[in-house]
């Protein structure tokens, strides 16, 4: 016990010194998790199903952004102005790829089964099949090795909080994440489209009686979630690079985030993402990097067992 206490104290000391640096990194990661989690939550809201193939939407966004950066940036060092444009372009490319992938997925792996009113297990299996198919096809077409994405900016510390450097990469994620999330929140809360999504989430049958086109709404829900997931894929790719299996771990964590915040709840997804990101960031002090995924997974199991409705509760239909 004494040894453990000593271990704990030593690490708490490290934590005190590194806290803000780890915190900033955690927030950035958490925003990415939140953006992916939104896709899970939206689809869950309208279909009451977990989209097992969401990881491949993320992967598609990552690759699309990677190829755009590779073609336009290459080894050059773009000017500050051009680099803003490039990042926006990368996000759009990732978002479009993610949206297209999500639309295809919905059409092939979900709608065919929905027409037949297949049992739940069938959806899970077809989505797992789709995921397996897609990431392995990506491996075939784009190679099985990991590569890093050319960055259109210099990743220096822009400013410091409490002595901790805030890197350019984090600022990009922060700005992009906040803008996208606010846009999504408004979309769901204020627009006709959003009302349709909420209506289907609350009660699909009534919504259809009231003239909401269910098929279209579900497709759009996939597309919206896919666009965010794809954009997150690009942002992730800029920091970590791309590889055909890149979707698996971030998606599992994003799912944890979605459950943590309350699946079906948009704000919950973002909050869950931030909490998980920061917690994971701080955990680096206590456990070896190899076990970080174990920590995230432990949180998932714990939340599911203790409070399966998450922090904010399961609700897409009722409020934002």
């Amino acid at each position: 016990m004494g040894a453990f206490g000593h271990y704990l104290l030593a690490h708490l000391d490290t934590l005190k010194h590194e806290f803000w640096a780890l915190f900033v990194g955690g927030v950035a990661n958490g925003l990415l998790y939140g953006m992916i989690a939104v896709g899970y939550t939206l689809v869950y809201g309208v279909l009451r199903l977990i989209n097992f193939a969401h990881s491949e939407i993320f992967m598609a966004g990552g690759f699309a952004g990677y190829f755009v950066m590779k073609a336009l940036v290459g080894a050059s060092a773009p000017s500050a102005f051009a680099s803003v444009g490039l990042i926006v372009l990368g996000i759009v490319a990732g978002g479009v790829a993610g949206a297209v992938m999500a639309a295809l997925l919905e059409r092939v792996a979900y709608r065919t089964l929905r027409r037949r009113n297949a049992p739940r297990l069938a959806y899970l299996i077809s989505a797992i099949g789709a995921s397996y198919f897609l990431f392995n096809l990506a491996g075939k077409e784009f190679g099985h090795i990991a590569v890093s994405t050319p960055q259109p900016y210099i990743n220096h510390a822009v400013f410091h909080i409490f002595g901790a450097p805030v890197l350019m990469y984090y600022i990009i994620i922060l700005i992009a994440g906040v803008i996208m999330f606010i846009a999504l929140d408004r979309l769901v809360a204020k627009t006709r489209l959003g009302r349709g999504i909420r209506a289907v989430a609350q009660d699909a049958e009534t919504a259809s009686l009231m003239g909401v086109n269910i098929d279209r709404t579900i497709a759009i829900t996939f597309i919206v979630g896919g666009a965010l997931g794809g954009a997150a894929g690009f942002l992730f790719a800029m920091g970590t690079g791309v590889v055909y299996t890149m979707g698996f771990v971030p998606a599992l964590k994003a799912f944890t985030a979605a459950v943590l915040g309350g699946i079906g709840n948009l704000r919950g997804a973002m909050i869950g993402g931030l909490i998980l990101g920061v917690f994971e960031g701080l955990c680096v002090v206590f456990v070896q990097a190899a076990y970080i995924d174990v920590v995230a997974f432990g949180i998932l199991v714990l939340v599911l067992l203790v409070r399966p409705t998450g922090i904010l509760g399961e609700r897409l239909g009722r409020s934002a």
Partner: peptide
């Protein structure tokens, strides 16, 4: 790739 496709086709 084939196995993934097979899962979808079977479902």
């Amino acid at each position: 790739i084939y196995l993934g496709a097979l899962l979808i086709v079977m479902m």
